Amino acid sequence: MVIQGYASLWGAADLNGDVVQAGAFADSLAKTGAEGVRMLHGHDGRAVVGVWDAIAEDARGLFVRGRIMDWSPEARLAQALSRAGALDGLSIGYRTARARRQGRLRVLSGVDLWEVSLVTFPMLPGARFSLSRTPA
Rank of each mutant, 00 (worst) to 15 (best):
V111T: 08
S91H: 10
G45L: 10
D18G: 01
D27K: 10
F121E: 09
V107M: 14
V119P: 02
G85T: 14
A99S: 15
A99F: 09
H41A: 08
R67V: 15
L40V: 01
F25G: 03
Y6D: 11
L90V: 08
P125M: 12
V48D: 02
G93E: 02
Y94A: 02
A24T: 07
I92T: 14
D88I: 03
I68T: 09
E74M: 14
L62E: 04
R128G: 06
A54C: 00
R133L: 14
S132E: 11
L105N: 14
S117H: 03
V19K: 01
A86I: 01
L90Y: 00
L87Q: 05
Q21F: 12
V49F: 01
G103M: 15
G33P: 01
P125E: 14
R46M: 12
H43M: 05
G89E: 03
G103T: 14
E35R: 08
P73T: 11
Q102I: 12
H43N: 01
A80Y: 04
Y94K: 04
L131A: 12
A136P: 06
D58R: 01
L62G: 02
S72C: 03
V20H: 09
F25L: 03
A59D: 14
E35G: 05
G50K: 01
S117Q: 06
Q102R: 10
Q4H: 13
R76N: 03
S132N: 11
D112C: 08
D88R: 15
G23R: 06
R65V: 02
I92H: 07
R46G: 06
L29Y: 02
R106M: 07
A86K: 12
W10I: 10
F63R: 03
L118N: 08
R104M: 11
S91T: 10
A80I: 13
G61L: 05
A97Y: 09
L87F: 11
H41Y: 15
T32R: 07
W71N: 15
G110P: 04
A97G: 00
L108G: 06
G103D: 13
G23S: 05
V116M: 08
A75T: 11
S82Y: 08
L62K: 03
P125L: 14
G45K: 08
A13Y: 04
G85Q: 14
M123A: 15
A24V: 07
R133P: 02
Y6M: 08
F25E: 06
D88Q: 12
M1N: 09
P135S: 14
A47Q: 11
R101F: 11
M1R: 10
M123D: 07
L87G: 03
G89I: 07
V64N: 02
G23M: 06
G11A: 04
S8V: 13
R98S: 07
G126L: 06
G33K: 12
M123W: 10
W10L: 08
W52F: 09
R100W: 13
A75V: 09
L90G: 02
A80V: 13
I3R: 00
A136W: 15
L118C: 00
G5T: 13
L77R: 10
N16Q: 11
D27T: 11
E57V: 07
G61D: 11
H43W: 06
